[in-house]
Amino acid sequence: MKYMQGSYPIVEKQAIAADTFSFTVRCPEVAALAKPGQFVHILPKGYGLRRPISIAGIDRATGTLRIVFAIRGKGTEALAQMNPGDDMDMIAPLGHGFTLLPEAQHVALVGGGIGVPPMLPLAKYYGERATAISGFRSFKQIILQEDFDALGAQAICCTEDGSAGAVKGFVTAPLEQLISEGLDAVYACGPMPMLRAVAEVCLRTGTWCEVSLEERMACGVGACLGCACRTKDANGEEQFLHVCKNGPVFKAEEVQW
């Protein structure tokens, strides 16, 4: 795996929902290597640990990456205060991304909240072969639905409180519907309870599924063993893999739910 550390200029910043920001960063050598499902490890000014943020867009033509994140604490708050022209200190591209299936006819991209952004590079790859099912707590958190439309994917928006979107409730109801109609693959990223529910549906129905996990990280490159994830090896024996290097993408059946 090849990755690098550098300071890259921010070329665009957009507030896209409450406390949620989209940044575009010019980093041609990173954009040339980045794959869907990988992440960047960004150092907020004045902090000692970097913040892992998933890649939401890869544009090789313009040499840019897009990242979308929500303010979760003081570190992400410091990142949100950066502006176009500022340099972002990042190590990238990192991690093991999603497996792309050229033959797949219909795939579901299941995102929950701030887990939606890493689904965009998959939507770009699959285009109209993809249905993006996005879940949010309420209308206030909804992001990126028009981006899925622009990439040709069908977008199904769910809100837990029914305040917006086609579906009131969780992402699993439309997912089960799609699976019953025939689905080649499911990709998912979001909060652990959502991932657990999506994995359960996929494992029960024998549907191919990859999930992208999140964990507190230090090095980001696989050296410190901080971001442990409980998995089962081929013999069913427990082993701790690491979200930064072995993941963030894992096969649903690998993870100990």
Partner: peptide, 20 residues
């Protein structure tokens, strides 16, 4: 040794905690 269950990392003022 498999190590401890995550989270194993926490940031602190000018430092960090680990429990790998």
């Amino acid at each position: 040794r498999t190590g401890n269950i995550a989270p194993r990392i926490a940031e602190t003022p000018a430092g960090m905690l680990n429990s790998v």
